[in-house]
């Protein structure tokens, strides 16, 4: 099944740099599978282009990466790109927001406004990373423990799974990361990050 996907990729701090690097991994795979992918990178990840892109291209799936709060998510430089007042722009789409807390209010508002599904986190999204990998985030194996499961969520949505099914797959992904960390060798510090992996698994939610 081929579909159209809008991806936001802000990049102005460590969190957004990593989220965008993993979004790029998903985008590469999605394009190979024949999906039509529209990307809003860095300064293009702003409210005007986000709304314009949705109106023009009518993507079925929206993959949002960035900072957020209970009733909003942001693009580049903390600019709010959609909030509970403008949630109707998400009508007919399935959204996955790798963003803090937006599944609390924005997600519910989006569903009320006619979104097919809204997946996000009801609490802060936590990421552990290694500073020596800043220049090459995709090579950061610690960050991969967190962001590979996150990518499993959007991959599942792009394959036609429902929001609830995608969340279930994401939770299995986090459990696999926890299992990897639990069974890491004595030289590894991955086991120290298990509480943070559990946190993200616990608060990944579908509205």
């Amino acid at each position: 099944m081929q579909t159209s996907i809008l991806v936001t990729c802000p990049d102005y701090d460590r969190m957004t740099r990593y989220l965008s690097a993993w979004a790029d991994k998903f985008t590469e795979q999605a394009k190979k599978r024949g999906h039509e992918v529209y990307e809003l990178k860095e300064k293009s990840a702003n409210k005007a282009k986000f709304h314009g892109m949705i109106k023009k291209n009518k993507p079925a799936i929206i993959f949002i990466n960035g900072h957020g709060d209970k009733d909003r998510v942001a693009g580049q430089d903390h600019e709010v790109i959609v909030d509970s007042k403008s949630a109707s722009i998400l009508k007919g789409t399935t959204v996955y927001a790798v963003s803090c807390k937006s599944a609390q209010i924005l997600g519910a508002q989006a569903i009320k406004a006619g979104a097919q599904g809204y997946i996000g986190y009801t609490e802060d999204f936590i990421l552990v990373s290694q500073p020596r990998k800043t220049a090459h985030p995709k090579d950061d194996k610690t960050a991969a423990l967190f962001l590979d499961p996150s990518n499993q969520v959007i991959a599942a949505v792009s394959k036609g799974h429902s929001a609830q099914e995608a969340v279930a797959k994401g939770r299995i992904g986090f459990a696999q990361s926890i299992s990897v960390a639990l069974n890491s060798d004595v030289q590894s510090d991955d086991d120290k990050y298990i509480p943070y992996l559990m946190w993200d698994r616990q608060f990944l939610s579908a509205c």
Binding site: R14, D69, D124, I126, V128, Q130, P131, D189
Partner: peptide, 15 residues
Amino acid sequence: AMPDGTNISIGNSGT
């Protein structure tokens, strides 16, 4: 007990 090089990004609180 975490390694010295660990960075944790928590929501909007930065890294």
